[in-house]
Design a protein around this nucleic acid. Structure first.
Lengths: 349, 349
DNA sequence: GAGGTCATTGTGAGCGCTAACAATTCCTGC
DNA sequence: GCAGGAATTGTTAGCGCTCACAATGACCTC
């Protein structure tokens, strides 16, 4: 049944076998209505027989459409970016697009620019940039590029079209939860200075405290890693007994480090110090103790940003706003409330 | 300086502006040696001025090379697949290839086949399949496909070219470590039945015990999730005092669940029960207690598999074996040895 | 200064497809 | 049995690039 051609069969080969013109083959493949059933069947049989597949390059050249989207991401082994990436690809594929990814170790103006060049050379029709660093977002607005770009993870400060979880709101939920539980004040271990999401979380935390008439303590800084959380946790442990009873940590991994440091310092969680994280990574339910945290709907971010990008590509007026905000959700566990439910009974992450 | 053409400029446009033929422009772009310096400079200026970029589709059509690789992956939010994906993309980009990814929720014959079709329609020259389930690997060998495929994460049972961490060896390291520490026997919480890597780890564990003259206990089964580890851990806790002093868990996430279950049952780690995990995810150093585990060099897997795939694509005789095995490494922490080093002092993950 | 060589540049023909238009066939109704 | 129109099919010209080869010219040798 299969030939063993040195070259894969072309449309002309199929046409010859079916006894029609190549254009008729193209019509069959394109589901054009005006093809006689008998002809269509004959063509389809020929296609089957030769194992024919359209050459995507030729098609792209003739239509000027590659049906490929690009994604630039960094830190893709972290839960957040990895989840976003997954959601993006799934959403794009549902629309018939292929996704090409460039993952960089560190997002800078140079790496971002190189990544866009690489994707551009690959013929992408548009790009999603998962660009949480402020510097990168700004660079994005400047760079000359022949296709639309949608930013993701840029927090509130985006000059380009974007889709984001509302980090400010997430921080308010976390901080408000701790205040409502009776804590007089809430400390904060923040993410890196340059990350807009970190800044948004700081702002949400600060505003919530100030609205409650509390002077916010100086926030600590980490780099998202458990190790930086551990170091900050050692420092925080020194403040226990001097007004520190609750900490809002800007992500779950750092919270894990904080928990370990507190434990090693003989500080009990949540009895002595309550801890809230951010992200709801799959592990956080099993930390010691299980972690109260803020869940982000990465899947929604992926779908909304792809929809927005496609609107931009196809030249449609976007069906919604070009700066999309998605609501996060608080997940309460034992790190703030000792009688929280056992594993497997809470809604799934 | 920039035109604002409805169409992006073509090679012919650049040629006209530079006063040369399109072929000379092509030569400049292709770094062909036989171009006069003066001409080259003039062409380059024209390219610059027009912001010209080669059309990748036209290029691909003429050269029959898309310089695009495909990757099929599942469970990409897990540390292992995400790390592999990252390494693959980085290695491919270093060779000038673009990577298109398809991430599926569940790897079955159908989803794998659809994924390959989608990538094929995207014109990929070869595919890396991260296919840890046995059924998927077998399907891979059957499917008709017009490009080479390299499997990754298939453990020892691969009929197609592959690159893998030696899971059998990793399990031997873990089990041997526990025996050497004086444990009489080692229990095992295995991964899902259908995963070859899980089977390889079971085999390594079993063989090590048998060589030491110990009858292996019945292994438990989990699904890689912390929750399944937690449930297994509850069961394991019931065997403490009846010969259970050491557990080898097939991944770190399940180990996290086991640790929680043991803790809740009043079982101390490592004094009552020692625990070893697998993967060395970034969090495991901060578990309670920090987890002894087996580290896999995903970066090496990525590089080796890309090198192999490119050999296959270019029709070269592969420079090495077509079934590549990479050595894992044991990382000892407090879950097996209570005086292990504090965070930040061990070699980085 | 004829002939040869090399470096440099240009020309023409595809690559495999789709879009636009032209040609043919098949029905209608009268 | 034939005009008129719709349905169906074919023809031609690109899309923008690279490859193979032809043409040009500079330079050298004897």
């Amino acid at each position: 049944m299969t030939h063993s051609p040195l070259r894969p069969p072309t449309m002309a080969d199929v046409a010859r076998l079916a006894g029609v013109s190549h254009q008729t083959v193209s019509r069959v493949l394109g589901d054009h209505p005006n093809v006689r059933d008998e002809t269509r069947a004959r063509v389809q049989r020929a296609i089957e027989e030769m194992g024919y597949r359209r050459n995507s390059s030729a098609r792209a050249l003739a239509t000027r459409r590659t049906r490929t989207l690009g994604v630039v991401a960094s830190n893709t082994t972290l839960y957040g970016p990895a989840s976003t990436l997954f959601a993006l690809e799934e959403a794009a594929r549902a629309e018939g697009y292929l996704v090409s990814t460039v993952s960089v170790r560190k997002l800078t103006v140079e790496t971002l620019s190189e990544a866009l060049d690489h994707l551009s050379d690959g013929g992408v029709e548009g790009v999603i940039a998962i660009a949480p660093q402020r510097s990168a977002v700004e660079a994005l607005a400047e760079l000359r590029r022949p296709f639309p770009v949608v930013a993701v993870g840029t927090g509130s400060a985006s000059t380009v079209p974007s889709a984001n979880v509302d980090q400010y709101l997430g921080a308010r939920l976390a901080t408000g939860h701790l205040l409502a539980a009776g804590h007089r004040t809430v400390w904060h271990l923040a993410g890196p200075e340059d990350w807009q999401e970190a800044a948004d979380r700081v702002a949400g935390w600060r505003d919530t405290l100030e609205e409650a008439g509390v002077e916010p303590p100086m926030p600590l800084r980490g780099d998202w890693s458990p190790l930086s959380g551990y170091r900050a946790g050692q420092e925080l442990a020194g403040w226990v007994g001097r007004g520190l009873t609750a900490v809002f940590v800007a992500n779950d991994q750092m919270a894990l480090g904080v928990l370990r440091a507190l434990r090693e310092a003989g500080v009990r969680t949540p009895q002595d110090v309550a801890v809230v994280g951010y992200d709801d990574i799959p592990e956080s339910e099993f930390f010691a103790p299980p972690l109260t945290t803020v869940r982000q709907d990465f899947s929604a971010v992926g779908q909304r940003s792809i929809a927005l990008l496609l609107d931009l590509i196809e030249g449609r007026t976007p069906s919604g706003p070009t700066r999309i905000a998605i609501e996060p959700q608080l997940v309460v566990r034992a790190s703030t409330y000792p009688y929280a439910s056992p594993p497997g009974t809470a809604p799934p992450g």
